[in-house]
Nucleic acid binder design. Structure first.
Lengths: 149, 149
DNA sequence: CTTTTTGATACGTAGTACGTACTATATAAA
DNA sequence: TTTATATAGTACGTACTACGTATCAAAAAG
């Protein structure tokens, strides 16, 4: 396989930074409007992960999201104080805790996902349908190597 | 043009979040290693913008990056204290300041861009060359509507 | 049964984002 | 010209975030 040219690299870096900024700004604006909750990307990822997997252990979640265990512990406390997640001891390991969404947290996580879908839909609608599947399959091929969400 | 399906939306949202996480972690790991500078995405964007445009006015940069003027002011001070950027009064407007890279700042910004290219290259090399151009053109079509970097 | 490892957290420190209030300059109105 | 208003930028205070270190408790290893 030929090596990508510098031009291709720069162009992709440029559009991806734009994409990141667009999505981050959209997320920042969207979330507080509905629930007055000051969200950040970490909370966002945590809630999304719990929505997909129902429960998670703090250490595993920290490693998965690339933050320190203490950081995830703090974030977990913050989300608990907002009533969005709760924790329960793991019956199989007395040291471990299991994080799960509360009923309210599930609602919020789903609302965020809806907003997320809306943003993504606005993006996708700008794409030619034929190119859409190629785009998605290509990115999946590149990014989803293992256990990413 | 047909509307994108929920499945397409979810799949793209998923891969984009993965992409963001991968790039953010790469950026976080890469930058301090070379210069012991605790970088964050805002600094990253500021330096990249100044590398492309040579100079910028704080207010415009803040609006462009989607942060408060005070936030950009603080970030500007931080980058100045690290010797990466400097400011000079605008001769055409006594209120305004112009931000520019220092010689050192230019080196750092270019080093970051090199690292950025390296990361992007690793991603792109995983893609079939034929799909590469389709991918890039499609994302450009979607994202680069106006004045993004 | 002691030692070591592992899961999780409390605390202290450094850094970040932003609203408010303020100064200085520029523009508009009287 | 003088006054009023809008704009560019910053200092300061507040709230929040990330993480290293130290610590405790439970499990695994010896």
């Amino acid at each position: 396989m030929t090596s990508p040219s510098d031009d291709e690299i720069d162009r992709l870096a440029r559009v991806i930074r734009s994409l990141i900024r667009e999505l981050l700004i959209a997320g920042r604006v969207g979330a507080p409007a509905e629930g007055k909750i000051p969200f950040n990307p970490l909370y966002f990822h945590m809630l999304g992960h719990l929505l997909n997997h129902r429960r998670a252990r703090p250490s595993e979640l920290a490693a998965f999201l690339g933050v320190a265990r203490t950081t995830l512990s703090t974030a977990s406390k913050a989300l608990q104080s907002r009533g969005l997640i709760k924790q329960a001891p793991d019956p199989e390991d007395g040291r471990a805790q299991m994080l799960v969404l509360t009923t309210e947290g599930r609602k919020v996580a789903q609302a965020i996902r809806r907003q997320d879908r809306k943003n993504m839909k606005l993006l996708l609608e700008r794409i030619d349908p034929a190119a859409r599947s190629i785009l998605i399959e290509t990115i999946e091929q590149v990014v989803l190597t293992e256990d990413n969400d």
